[in-house]
Nucleic acid binder design. Structure first.
Lengths: 204, 204
DNA sequence: TATCTGAATGAATGATCATTCATTTGCTGG
DNA sequence: CCAGCAAATGAATGATCATTCATTCAGATA
């Protein structure tokens, strides 16, 4: 049954919807105040809900943080896969789509970038964060290497696609970081240019 | 007067030495527990000193953190400059030295990398961290672009050295992050290979 | 309409932590 | 050897924060 919109202050929501609302609020708070300074009250206030709501839906603050990180990581991966698994696209078209995706507004969102790097910053100290952050790395790297393999001149024997894929991944990470650090110096357009300069080696 | 080593528990040290000792302890703690979870007691215990010592020498926890970040940032810059300002080195030799430096044990130190990225993670929320982290970026980028300018074929008019320097900087940032994330998958040797693959465009 | 269910609330609790400052201790010049 | 001083100490303080749980309330059911 679809829920009729209601003016009442307190309204029960499906569990999944409440959880997503809280995750969105968490992203906003971490982007604004940082991971270290974000309190439960920041999050619940930002969501317009009461003090105990996080413990009700996530058991603890730490579990909410973990789910928030997972949300951001999985969101990237979904977009990536939807391009890679699209059989209608040629190898060239896939590459173009991936690069466009990596520097699209969907990914270059300073709030989500801030959240991503906030958790990355704690990776050495928190093995679970590390696990979630690197969860899709191997799969993405393999798929990118395969894509590159289909694009190189077949007579170029000693081109290392795996290494080149690692490079692309590191380059985009670095460019995202630059954009987070100083969006004025590194614009999205410029970052995309840098990425294509790197990839030109492959096409030419 | 040189200080004779002493067994006594409590010994006054020159201010600068005490401050450095506390900064070193802070680096160790942030690498072990993360920026968010590092307490004053962690730091003072790790340094083998008493509770109030940080407030005595740095006024507050926040100022100690800022000085720690500055320490890590400046240390990189000093090593960079000592290569760049060495008139005895040719352009090729400088490039080789810079790459060797970027992936040397002096820089690829997982404790310092952890500290660096821990602060980077808070950059969106803390303008002062942002300022310190990006403090040397423009200078380094200009010097790298100049170095590249001296290495390209003079007839290659449309090679954008600035852009290429931005790419090198982003690539190294990304590779450092990879090393911090999974040193088993991305070894220092492999990272250096990736960097040289990027730079090969320039040399060939 | 009356009853029931579980989602949501928020005041209260207890734990953690940065900071303070009265006191102690080691060093140095007289 | 002692007085004076600056460095260092650490118990005490007060502030902040995550979590709890008794209570409230909205909507569904009969």
């Amino acid at each position: 049954m679809p829920q009729a919109p209601s003016q009442t202050r307190r309204r029960a929501l499906p569990k999944a919807a409440r959880r997503e609302q809280l995750i969105k609020a968490t992203i906003k708070c971490i982007a604004r105040k940082g991971l270290a300074a974000t309190t439960m009250m920041d999050i619940t206030r930002s969501a317009g809900l009461s003090t105990g709501i996080v413990n009700l839906h996530f058991k603890s603050k730490e579990l909410l943080l973990v789910e928030t990180l997972r949300h951001v990581a999985d969101e990237y991966k979904e977009g990536f896969d939807s391009i890679m698994l699209d059989d209608k696209l040629s190898a060239q078209a896939k590459l173009r789509s991936i690069v466009a995706y990596d520097f699209s507004a969907r990914i270059i969102n300073r709030n989500k970038l801030a959240v991503w790097f906030a958790f990355l910053g704690e990776v050495k100290a928190c093995p679970l964060y590390r696990k979630i952050c690197s969860r899709h790395d191997d799969d993405i790297n393999r798929k990118m290497a395969d894509l590159f393999q289909g694009l190189i001149d077949s007579h170029d024997q000693d081109f290392d696609c795996e290494l080149f894929a690692s490079g692309y991944s590191a380059l985009t990470d670095g460019l995202w970081l630059d954009i987070l650090l100083s969006p004025s110096r590194t614009t999205t357009r410029k970052a995309e240019q840098v990425a294509w300069q790197y990839l030109s080696e492959l096409i030419a």
